[in-house]
Design a protein around this nucleic acid. Sequence first.
DNA 1: TTATATATTTAAGTTTCTTATATATTGCAA
DNA 2: TTGCAATATATAAGAAACTTAAATATATAA
Lengths: 114, 114
Amino acid sequence: MISSDLLKGSLKTIVLKLLQEEGPMHGYAITQRVEELTQGKIKLTYGALYPILHKLENENILVTTTEIRSNRTRIYYALTPKGDSVVVEKIRELNEFIESMQQIVTPKTGLSHA
Amino acid sequence: MISSDLLKGSLKTIVLKLLQEEGPMHGYAITQRVEELTQGKIKLTYGALYPILHKLENENILVTTTEIRSNRTRIYYALTPKGDSVVVEKIRELNEFIESMQQIVTPKTGLSHA
DNA sequence: TTATATATTTAAGTTTCTTATATATTGCAA
DNA sequence: TTGCAATATATAAGAAACTTAAATATATAA
């Protein structure tokens, strides 16, 4: 399990990318899939996930469709066109961030320390 | 400039790794060096940096030595033995985090979507 | 019938960071 | 010689993001 400190700020990116990759999903399935993809290293808590989903819906980045399957409600979240472009931007930022972190963690010998 | 959201939780790791790589530094120099290493993409604010340094000192992860150079005070921060092992752990966590994020961002075709 | 898994919600609290402000010296340019 | 940029540190107030905890309800396997 990864220290939640590092995860702060990246949950939104995780959720959006997952929806881009796998199409509409409901909240519970998102937590399961993230855990599966990361071999249990990243676990989304419901207290974090659902407020994020609600917020993204309010911002017109996600839309919902409700499915009632044998008396159990599932709320599927899908990217809007606006959401599609937000994902692209978020992924660009994430790659830039990872690159920058690696520049600090694995310093290039080429850079002078002067 | 990277969205500060992604940076949340990683500032401590950045500071500690930098001190490991470059030896004792004072706060102002840390901000300059991080900016330099990341081509301006990561900028530490003083409001974030100094409280982190104070906290790490209280936790016995850093020790300070004060230098007065032509009436200007510089407080150098250096890793303690405890700090050395904290850095190792933080870097391990960071690598795990980056790996996990890449698993989401760049899904392996080998993993079933079932 | 009881525990576990599925499925969502939200309030209260903590941590972490941003923004703003304060202080003080040095050095360069106008 | 005045004023601005750079150097150098400190901290309070507030916002944002997350954790923890508690609530609700159904399905299913033991």
